[in-house]
Design a binder for these strands. Structure first.
Lengths: 163, 163
DNA sequence: GAAGTATACTTAACATGTTAACTGAATTCA
DNA sequence: TGAATTCAGTTAACATGTTAAGTATACTTC
């Protein structure tokens, strides 16, 4: 709008890469969630873990990593932190001593139920400002995008139809 | 497609937040670029800086931060690293001693011209697999999204019409 | 049933993200 | 002009991202 003259199909003028556009979009959303989470003493990633735990009542680390989309080393550190805060408990899987099983403590559940409504409110704002319809289109395109790119170079997990 | 039964408008079942969907999309793309960049001895962020420098021939840190979408502390560290690798030179702005001005060295330019084609090739793959049309839709939606959300809680820079 | 392999994390090391405090140079204004 | 303020970058401290190596348990196979 400012410059008027945009090339017909720039798609990428070597400084607006797709990863960076995705990052900008993500950042514009996170700029709203971060202060709220910070008020609750949480980082974005810690909240992702708590949210996953709240939905499952007992999960091993691998499942947690998948659901919260965190790499194992990050998850290890985050769980250590959440344990030290008494928000999460760790126990060993009876059938497989390699697996660690995690649960939300009552403080953890309490924290979740305090943060969740704030999170919902911010989502509602976004839906309202951007429009539910466009938001759905965006969700759909994003899912299609990463499902398209996944087969060629995906995460080593969740590929079961490869053998 | 796999499960068949998807709710009509989930939009977010409390474990598929928009930031995470954006992250997944971004990650699916970066999973392709990262190995290539790694082969050239670069991280994604270092490449963003070099790309911005290659387009401008002489930039101060603030402009670099905006163009590469990096926070100042990250940029500081990255520039220190690139200087130590002799890929970038630093000099002081004559008119404003606060500003640092950066340029690509000849090695830096050389590296850029080696990486750029590899980057282009991967983009071409993505365009081909996902489809140019969908990719354009995605770009457009993303831009619309972050432009919509920006006014309410934007970066303190590049807002000039606020006064 | 012991060696070999795979699995589920954990550690380590380095790079970046995020926020806050800090330094020095320009600007404003009384 | 000199104190107060703003601005550009840097430093600091802690959390996470990324890759590689390590550890212990489970599984496989001969």
């Amino acid at each position: 709008m400012a410059k008027g003259k945009e090339r017909a199909a720039p798609l990428r003028d070597f400084e607006h890469s797709l990863p960076m556009e995705l990052l900008k979009a993500r950042e514009s959303a996170m700029a709203r969630f971060r202060p709220m989470l910070r008020d609750h003493g949480l980082t974005e990633q810690q909240w992702r873990v708590i949210r996953a735990l709240a939905a499952l009542e007992s999960v091993d680390a691998g499942e947690l990593a998948r659901r919260s989309f965190l790499l194992a080393p990050s998850l290890t550190r985050i769980l250590q932190h959440l344990e030290s805060e008494k928000l999460v408990t760790r126990s060993a899987d009876a059938n497989d001593q390699r697996r660690a099983v995690f649960k939300l403590t009552s403080s953890g559940k309490q924290l979740f139920s305090k943060v969740a409504p704030d999170s919902e409110a911010l989502y509602a704002d976004i839906e309202c400002e951007f429009g539910v319809h466009k938001l759905e289109s965006l969700y759909a395109l994003l899912a299609e995008f990463y499902q398209t790119l996944a087969p060629a170079a995906a995460a080593p997990e969740d590929r079961s139809a490869t053998a």
